Simulated assay, not measured.
Amino acid sequence: MITNDISTVFYRGYLSYLRERGWDVTIISRDTGKLTALGEAEAVDIVDVDMVRDPSPIQDLRSLVRLTRAIRRVRPDVLVFSTPKASLLASVAGWLLRVPVRIYHILGLRYETESGIRRRIFRALEKTAAGLATETLAVSHSLAELVREERLTSRVVVLGEGSPFGTDLRRFNAEAVDIPALDAVTETFLASRGNAFRLLFVGRITGDKGVGDLLDALVLLAARGVEIASVIVGPGEDAGLERRIDELVTEHAIRRVGSVSDPRAYMREVDILCLPTLREGFGQVIVEAAGLGVPTITTQATGARDVVVDGQTGLVVPVRDGVALAAAIERAAGDRDRVREWGAAARARAEEFYSTERVWRQYADHFDASAR
């Protein structure tokens, strides 16, 4: 159960794997067309239930009624729900119908960087979903720690080293034959920077992703004469940050790229990934870059600090600290041999803990045990 079918990309292969393990799988979500395509590709049942992400009491009540009817028809032994709105509604419906195993698959805490009334409301919703579940599955150990600290529930576990769905390390591999070509403008930009240290950011352009701290760090590095060629990839969700990026593009050697369907072309062409995030559930993009042998500089934020071993597969700096971030980037730029060693170690760690084969097996084994 998920709120809408935007997230269905993560379920490719996973649902058919569960089916091969003997499960009769149904996925419930709002369908804009992607859900139907997923059901056909994975040979699983789909149920379209209209839901909206933002609070809407009347619409939410309608969705709850439809969802309850859908779950009653399916009669699941195990109900797994993730994403905030779907989790709230599914936890209520599953509890009302007394579904024996109700698992909240928690991908992160949206309210972690909120304040005031919004924080209190979102926390209450998370506590409701977790409280009505028979178990909460967190996608990282630091997220599980936060769930306990926030007293959302004590019934929280992590499978292995975490990960929501695993990473296809055959696809995220520098030798993969289907990696698309780099766009011409970015290729020209990188070529024009000569031997500059190449840095990549991939993610939503928001304060939560630490983009402001990254820009602060790049300004400091430019003032010190450290040559950095930075590529920023992802959808723009903060007009103020976009304006600031535009102001810095020429002076500080920044190439702004919008949303891309496949980040591998960019990952393959850089020295390091930088994710100065304020919160994550799990640092998925870090593992994807690791697959291509690219290490990461990230922060001690929830869900990010689990994935990078400081000084071995990258560097970890304090949250909201542009000065420390600049120092870490400068350290990496000054020792490229060490950066390559970090990249090789990051790939090895990804293979050990985060492959789809390992993670899917952990989930299937857990569902088998839960249903006994």
Rank of each mutant, 00 (worst) to 15 (best):
A290I: 01
L278F: 12
I6F: 05
I6S: 13
E187C: 08
D45W: 00
L107M: 12
R198C: 03
L182S: 13
L214Q: 02
F10G: 00
I228P: 00
L64R: 08
P164C: 12
D50G: 03
L315H: 10
D208Y: 02
H105A: 14
R148K: 14
I103D: 00
M1N: 05
V202P: 03
R155F: 02
E150D: 15
E114N: 13
L200W: 06
A350Y: 04
D216Y: 06
V157I: 10
V52F: 11
A345H: 11
L38R: 10
D365H: 06
R268H: 14
Q59C: 00
I254Q: 09
E42D: 03
L248V: 10
G212Q: 11
A348M: 13
D5S: 04
V211N: 05
H252S: 10
E114R: 01
F282D: 04
G291E: 04
H105V: 08
A90S: 15
A184Y: 05
A332T: 01
A290T: 01
T302D: 00
V219F: 06
V158P: 05
G13I: 05
M267G: 02
R256C: 08
V92T: 13
D77A: 11
S91K: 01
S91E: 07
V260M: 10
R12A: 04
A327H: 13
T3D: 07
A326W: 04
Y363T: 10
P57C: 13
V80Y: 02
R255M: 13
S7N: 12
L215F: 02
R193K: 15
G291Y: 06
R102G: 06
D262G: 08
R148H: 01
Y266I: 07
V177F: 04
A346L: 00
E149D: 14
A326P: 10
A93S: 14
R110E: 05
P180Q: 09
L18A: 11
V319P: 05
E237Y: 08
R256T: 03
V211S: 11
S91P: 09
Y17S: 12
L79H: 08
L273Q: 07
V309I: 15
L241N: 08
T113K: 08
L89P: 02
L89F: 10
V47M: 13
T134D: 07
T277G: 07
E280K: 01
A70R: 00
A41L: 12
Y111T: 03
A229F: 04
F81S: 03
E112W: 13
K209H: 04
V101R: 15
H252V: 03
D48S: 15
I71C: 07
R349M: 15
D45L: 05
V202G: 08
L292D: 05
L241P: 03
D178F: 01
P57H: 12
V52H: 14
T128G: 02
S140A: 11
R53V: 09
S56G: 12
D335E: 11
V316F: 11
D48F: 02
I232L: 15
W95T: 04
R340E: 13
P235S: 11
T188G: 14
G291T: 07
R98W: 09
V147F: 13
G160V: 06
Y14W: 11
K209Y: 05
G94M: 10
A176V: 07
W23M: 13
L152V: 09
L61D: 00
R340L: 05
A138T: 07
G234R: 04
D50K: 14
Q300D: 12
A333N: 10
F189W: 03
